[in-house]
Design a protein around this nucleic acid. Structure first.
Lengths: 345, 345
DNA sequence: CTGTTAGCGCATTCAT
DNA sequence: ATGAATGCGCTAACAG
């Protein structure tokens, strides 16, 4: 392996000179700078990260804590991981992936061994034990998702409550009075995921606000049961003319179930998605409120970087920043007004 | 930060003794071992990774090189990333995520700065420039996907050629004589992705082998064009009674297009998927040849670990290992025989 | 000012 | 079981 000494020798200078050329933390005459740079290029020298880190206590690495995969794989996690990795590079960081099936202990290990400068926690729950762990360790962290305590750590999230309300409001504006809201799965709700809880809250709030009849249903990961549930849902005494789907992973199944009931979308049933991934609607072009993956990824990365800078400066405890992203409605094909079926009710 | 010296002091021994207790690479009297362990626990000591690495030249990190995202995000990449991360932990490695939009230079940076012990290359192309780079750097690597040169680096892959052939063979066995094969996108084929090229080859080989008429079509990422292409495809003079889909990301769209043509699956058109993600068929329960994500992830991680061990031992150049995974057919609902439409032809 | 020397950061491992 | 050398780069203090 080629070291800074090799470069120094080849350039006929002292190792420290090479270091200064590299860091630019001191003025070096243009002459020697060129000589040194040439030696670096010729030898293909790259400073050893471990040596640097040992000296500086900075790794330029962010730990990305994915959720423990209790309910199987969620496409959204992979998407965020990749997007965050890109964002991190733009800030000069690499990303260490932690499929935190190890949970808190895994994060402890990384933090205490100094393998990262900060952590980004994904799939945050309302009362997430990882948050307390980060605070206790004094380890900088940023949350992808909003926990119960907005002031604990910096965070970013889509405003899920507003998103759910917005979806309903758009339907109401198109004339729908009987609206079904298919929330996330029971599992996610029981796990107290912020997006699940807040989406539910937003859906419930929408009824009084719009005057429409909004019936909220939880979803399930069991596709057979889900199909039955949808069948039931569509055959109440005042059947809905519109459906909001927050459980977007099941969208293809849901649309298939709707079709199986003999209903056409959107003529017989208007469908709006909430929180789908950009470019991934399961084969349909629906009106929707998309998950702002790029914005959230950029924001959480920036917040993590800021948390590192803040800690490094040892400044007085700055209140953690945050970014609550307002939902944006994408009309897609225009929302259909209530269909002929509405008359039957 | 607490260091090995702090522990030594508290335990009343020399730092080296603590080190030996930790590594177990030498016998320590039970007495002192307990004293030291207690000091470690009380102080919550964890060895600094950078110091360890500096000394030992081992990072216990694998670099995971994701494809540059030319054609947008592919769900399969995220899935593999997560699965590989889990597999790596089982081998004692952490995973550094490289969204290699930086490509070869990014890998160079990681390799030369000593941030990882080996690389796992995803989305390998037939003639992938990263392979030459790894060899030139003498950096251990394993491939997720099969390149043109089987002997360059260790690799694992689904046997895509056999998978495509198998799908066609199963349809032929159910009586289908007119089979359409919808391959991957033109983009992937032009990028010379191994799975795309080999899937094509397998589809073409299936015709002579089964005696069926197998017409091969390339797919496209443009969903409007894809729908048109499918319409055309279904209305030839001898319309197919069965369709094999390797472009599984578009499966929902494809099924929607088929439905739009007034055809029912599987009564009018039998559909088989090739290379879909486990638990992700876009809402349908189709017969299929799944992508063996867990097996491939485990294999590529093992191969990377072996490559590290081999190099560390400085053994004579062991021929790189590999694992070509035979395709497994999942019947799903039984394949329908050719429908009434066949008679019309 | 520009360049050099020396010491530090932390864990490992060979001699003693 | 211990002291000392080692791996590599950074930077404060010093010299020209």
């Amino acid at each position: 392996m080629t070291t800074i000494k090799d470069v120094a020798q080849r350039a006929g200078v002292a190792p420290s000179t090479v270091s200064y050329v590299l860091s630019g933390s001191r003025k070096i005459s243009e002459d020697t700078r060129r000589t040194v740079q040439q030696a670096i290029d010729e030898l293909g020298y790259h400073p050893r990260a471990s040596a640097r880190t040992l000296r500086s206590t900075r790794t330029n690495v962010l730990a990305l804590a994915l959720p423990r995969v209790a309910g199987g794989y969620r496409a959204v996690d992979g998407r965020f991981a990749i997007e965050i990795s890109d964002a991190a590079r733009a800030h000069g960081y690499d990303v260490l992936l932690m499929t935190a099936q190890e949970g808190v202990p895994g994060l402890r290990r990384i933090a205490r061994s100094g393998q990262a400068d900060a952590a980004i926690l994904m799939a945050v729950e309302m009362d997430d034990p990882r948050i307390a762990a980060m605070l206790e360790l004094g380890f900088p962290a940023a949350l992808l998702g909003r926990s119960a305590d907005d002031a604990a750590l910096p965070w970013t999230d889509l405003d899920w409550e507003a998103a759910a309300t917005l979806a309903v409001r758009e339907l109401a504006a198109a004339g729908h009075r009987d609206i079904a809201y298919l929330a996330t799965t029971e599992r996610e709700i029981q796990a107290q995921r912020g997006y699940a809880i807040r989406g539910l809250a937003g859906a419930r709030r929408a009824a009084p606000e719009t005057g429409a009849d909004v019936r909220v249903h939880q979803s399930t990961g069991d596709m057979a049961r889900l199909a039955r549930r949808i069948g039931t849902l569509l055959h109440g005494e005042r059947p809905p003319t519109a459906l909001v789907v927050q459980h977007v992973a099941a969208l293809p199944h849901i649309l298939a179930a709707v079709a199986a009931e003999g209903l056409r979308v959107p003529e017989d049933l208007a469908v709006v998605a909430v929180g789908n991934l950009p470019d991934d609607l399961g084969g349909q072009d629906l009106p929707r409120v998309e998950l702002p993956v790029p914005e959230m990824s950029a924001a959480v990365t920036r917040l993590a970087a800021e948390a590192i800078a803040t800690r490094t400066q040892g400044t007085s405890p700055t209140p953690p920043g945050h970014l609550l992203i307002p939902p944006a409605f994408v009309p897609g094909p225009r929302i259909a007004p209530p269909g002929p079926r509405a008359a039957n009710a």
